[in-house]
Design a protein around this nucleic acid. Structure first.
Length: 580
RNA sequence: GGACUGGUAGUUCAGCUGGUUAGAAUGCCGCCCUGUCACGGCGGAGGUCGCGAGUUCGAGUCUCGUCCAGUCCGCCA
């Protein structure tokens, strides 16, 4: 139907007869002249109609509304007024005939880079929103990421194998999306939260390098970076140590930075979970800037300031060059950390003024020497501001983490386009839950403990470290994985620590444990959040912008209006009765 | 489950301590314009102020409830 697309013609094509197809972006009527911007995926080309040379055609062109689908034939001509802003700006098409392939309603919002449409409206008409360049580029980026991922992994002899979507519900982890089985009344499939068990079975089957770019499903509340269905780059390898896995996938990180963004990056720093928590208060630190935590219990305790004396942890950050902060600004920061989402009970400041004097909210408890010792510990210089939070260790760290990120943002230290990937290692194997009074696997129940910590499974399970690792970029968890347990006895012990009875373990994971009795190789793997990684590379705010048809905050697709009710007949057939 | 923010022309928003005819921009329609490209000029149409109660002589504005959207906490092995 077309000889060229709307983004490729230039002066070298002048005089050529062409046919273009596309959508009417906008038309400009000048009395005797009519210009139409014709748009397709590749760009915009200007069509021109002249009242003097063909009044009928020019008149007809004026009947074309926005988003009409048009096929136009004519001669490529050099423009008398060139537009330097677009690649095709030096030429235009002198149209001698055109055809409306399909008219269009007036679109509910303008289909331009700076659209006037709000989010909700654009989601409802997502197919129109996707015509906008920004969204098109986001999906092109996603495609490029997928292609380069496959290229890299294929070059290392990984093979992509599909695993089932209709699987079995398991109690650990996120809530399952569940699918009723018509042929097995009262029974349900679950959609996979990840292909975890299947990729381990593939290792038992001898496919020693597996990957899959695969959809995963979790029935949990949504966020800007969380969708109920999302995509992982899921990988597993046999006959490997943790070091082998980190090196192989550090290679993927380098390859994607290079091939997609055209950037060479340095060897990824590695930090232990414990250090990440004590220096950044987070297991996914944003290391684009410093401001690491300094713990000062010893320096400030026993001076009569009860809040510090009683605190499990007193820690702070040094904010360079902010000693001039006003009372109002400090009050604002105090309010910030006291918000329920941050959860600190207060904020103490020490201003190291330019003239060398010291001002603090706790002046009456400490001498100048006391403050100087603290400031030295922070390596503070005149002009710096130290902000301190105290209380329970975990609360203090998470609040200080929020404050650090906030200050980093205010000082412009979290620069867009600055990428600082790193590995976080040695995660704890287990996590204690107060409400249920038992341990849960922090990663998943097949994660192997660090060998020298295995004896502690009996004595101090909370202190056992795992052979687990996360990839973090700019404060976002991009991926995580572990070396798996391939030994049946160890796996049994793990289930028992998690509070599974032998029968429960057998019922839920018997197929895996049985498989491990038939020569399971040592293996391990990793999975990356493909949507998040793409979003980071695109400098986006929300993974929604990198998914063609995303769900909204309540898990709804407002375009197709789902989820939705189903008929009585369907319910009957599925053997389901709804609560009145 | 919880906190906060928002909901007013097709769209994006403004609308003060409650006050009589609810505005702007853009889009849309009509007329004019031969080099525009965010074209320009003139004119016009377009509103259940999310929904329901309440306070008041009077509610877009205040109160309560409710629905929807967004950000976050919980949750997300």
């Amino acid at each position: 139907m077309r000889t060229h697309n709307c983004g490729e013609l230039n002066l070298s094509h002048a005089g050529l007869r062409v046919t273009l197809c596309g959508w009417v972006q906008r038309s400009r009527e000048m009395g005797g002249l009519t210009f139409i911007d014709l748009r397709d995926r590749y760009g915009i080309t200007q069509l021109v109609f002249n009242m003097e040379t063909n009044a009928t055609l020019c008149d007809a062109a004026r009947g074309l509304g926005r988003e009409f689908v048009v096929s136009a034939e004519g001669i490529v001509a050099e423009r008398s007024n060139k537009n330097k802003k677009i690649p095709t700006g030096e030429i235009e098409i002198l149209v001698d005939s055109f055809r409306v392939l399909n008219p269009s309603n007036i679109p509910p919002f303008t289909i331009e880079d700076n659209t006037d449409g709000g989010e909700e409206l654009r989601m409802k008409y997502r197919y129109l929103d996707l015509r906008r360049t920004v969204n098109r580029k986001n999906l092109e980026l996603r495609h490029k990421m997928a292609v380069e991922t496959r290229r890299y992994l294929d070059s290392l002899k990984f093979i992509e194998i599909e695993t089932p979507y209709l699987i079995k519900s398991t109690p650990e982890g996120a809530r399952d999306f569940v699918v009723p089985s018509r042929m097995n009344p009262g029974n349900f499939y679950a959609l996979p939260q990840s292909p975890e068990t299947f990729k381990q079975l593939l290792m038992v089957a001898g496919f020693d390098r597996y990957f899959q770019i695969v959809r995963c499903f979790r029935d949990e509340d949504l966020r800007a970076d969380r969708q109920p269905e999302f995509t992982q780059i899921d990988c597993e390898m046999a006959f490997v140590t943790q070091e082998d896995i980190l090196n192989t996938f550090e290679g993927l990180v380098h390859h994607l930075f290079d091939s997609v963004l055209g950037r060479k990056i340095e060897t990824l720093p590695r930090i232990s979970y414990e250090d990440a928590m004590s220096l950044y208060g987070s297991d996914k630190p944003d290391i684009r800037f410093g401001m690491t935590f300094v713990e000062i219990n010893d320096l400030v305790g026993g001076k009569g300031f009860k809040v510090f004396d009683d605190a499990e942890l007193v820690a702070g950050i040094k904010v360079p060059g902010c000693s001039g902060y006003s009372r109002k600004q400090l009050d604002e920061l105090t309010d910030f950390v006291k918000r329920p989402q941050v959860g600190a009970s207060g904020l103490v400041y020490i201003k190291f003024e330019e003239d060398g004097s010291v001002k603090s909210s706790v002046d009456k408890f400490y001498s100048r020497d006391d403050f100087m010792r603290v400031l030295t510990e922070f390596s503070a210089l005149p002009g710096d501001l130290v902000l301190i939070i105290a209380g329970r260790k975990d609360k203090t760290r998470s609040a200080l983490c929020e404050l650090r990120l906030e200050m980093g943002g205010r000082l412009g230290l979290r620069k867009t386009g600055d990428f600082r990937p790193l590995w976080v290692l040695d995660f704890p194997l287990l996590e204690w839950h107060e409400e249920t009074g038992r341990f849960y696997a922090k990663h998943h129940p097949f994660t192997s403990p660090v060998p020298e910590d295995i004896p502690m499974l009996e004595t101090d399970p909370g202190a056992v470290r795992a052979n687990a690792y996360d990839l973090v970029i700019n404060g976002v968890e991009i991926g995580g994985g572990s070396i798996r347990i391939h030994n049946k006895d160890l796996q049994k012990k793990m289930f028992s620590v998690l509070g599974f009875s032998e029968e429960q373990a057998q019922e839920q994971f018997g197929f895996l444990m049985n498989a491990f009795e038939y020569g399971a190789p040592p293996h391990g793997g990793i999975a990356f959040g493909f949507d998040r990684w793409t979003t980071i590379f695109g400098n986006g705010d929300s993974i929604r912008d990198y998914i063609a048809f995303p769900k909204n905050n309540s898990g709804r697709d407002v375009m197709i209006d789902s989820p939705s009710k189903i008929s009585e007949e369907q319910l009957e057939e599925l053997n389901i009765r709804l609560k009145k």
